[in-house]
């Protein structure tokens, strides 16, 4: 059992935003497969069909995607969130996005009817014009949006950060001073792939974000720095597919981990990571995950 921002998780693995999170049934499916909590697809103010395909491609070192924040709008998503809430016992976190503080608040208030356990603010999508990282790289906007949402909802607020900035700690501090209950790091790393047979960029959007194994060391460093600088919990995400990856991320300072691209290999990834962490803790004689969170910081 792990408690983060007041939410009780039966294990520290969380489904990452945008992965099998478009429908209530899908979130329920992942929860049944063993995730300790689930985060929805990022939901916005209006229906959006996303970028043209190809929208996700597996590369030699990871995955490249530019979905373009497809979502049915918060109005249509309320019933999906209700399904997820009613049919699972794990916490359900609503990921939301908007182009301004007002839009974030409108989406959060709309979805509040379905009683999500927390909100995760997507201030980090690297390929949506006017959204995500476009505002998430400006500390002033991050603080303003975080505090606007915190003032209008009565559940914990997590802020998801982009690694595509010079100093992620400055953004993390802005989120914390806006009232964030936790930060989530990292979203995908700006990237591109080109089809050499034709010269076309492979993604319909031409460029997108890298996830999977290639970005794990980047995520570990971001989590390490955020843990050292902030007093709120850090949730680690980026390239986690095994219990060893999760333990490493926790030693860097993550209170829990999110898993995204690794569902490609199978939904049993949540169960295998959490049981692997448990065996590791027992074998090493640790009392619980709290004994390894941030452990690397003392090793100098």
């Amino acid at each position: 059992m792990v408690t983060i921002t007041g939410l009780d998780l039966k294990n520290p693995t969380i489904l990452a935003a945008g992965i099998m999170g478009t429908t209530g049934a899908s979130l329920v499916h992942v929860a049944k497969e063993g995730a300790g909590a689930v985060v929805t697809k990022s939901i916005g103010p209006a229906p959006e069909k996303g970028h043209p395909n190809p929208s996700m491609v597996r590369l030699e070192c990871g995955f490249l995607n530019a979905m373009g924040l497809p979502n049915p709008s918060y109005k249509d998503f309320i019933k999906e969130l209700e399904i997820a809430k009613n049919e699972t016992s794990v916490p359900v976190i609503a990921s939301i996005f908007g182009g301004s503080a007002d839009e974030f608040v409108r989406v959060a208030e709309g979805l509040s009817h379905a009683k999500p356990d927390a909100f995760e603010l997507n201030l980090s999508c690297p390929h949506a014009e006017g959204y995500g990282a476009m505002i998430g790289s400006d500390p002033h906007k991050v603080q303003q949006i975080t505090s606007a949402v915190c003032n209008n909802v009565d559940v914990p607020v997590w802020v998801k950060l982009t690694p595509n900035v010079t100093d992620i700690v400055a953004i993390g501090k802005a989120a914390a001073s806006g009232g964030a209950d936790a930060v989530v790091a990292i979203n995908t790393v700006r990237a591109m792939a080109i089809d050499i047979a034709s010269g076309y960029p492979i993604l319909g959007n031409r460029f997108g974000g890298l996830s999977g194994p290639a970005i794990k060391p980047i995520a570990v460093k971001c989590v390490y720095d955020l843990y050292a600088a902030l007093d709120i919990p850090v949730i680690g995400v980026g390239g986690i597919s095994t219990w060893q990856d999760a333990v490493e991320m926790m030693m860097a300072g993550a209170s829990a981990v999110q898993v995204g691209s690794a569902v490609f290999e199978g939904l049993d990834v949540f169960g295998s990571i959490s049981s692997g962490i448990d065996s590791f803790l027992t074998e090493k004689g640790y009392g619980g995950v709290e004994d390894i969170i941030g452990l690397a910081h003392g090793m100098v």
Binding site: I19, M20, G21, T23, H29, G50, N53, S55, N65, V263
Partner: peptide, 20 residues
């Protein structure tokens, strides 16, 4: 409707099973 086409994004999940 297939978006990622590789079983990750969840756009093609069926109700109520959540199967892709």
């Amino acid at each position: 409707y297939f978006k990622c086409g590789i079983g990750v994004c969840g756009a093609c999940c069926m109700d109520p099973s959540g199967l892709r």
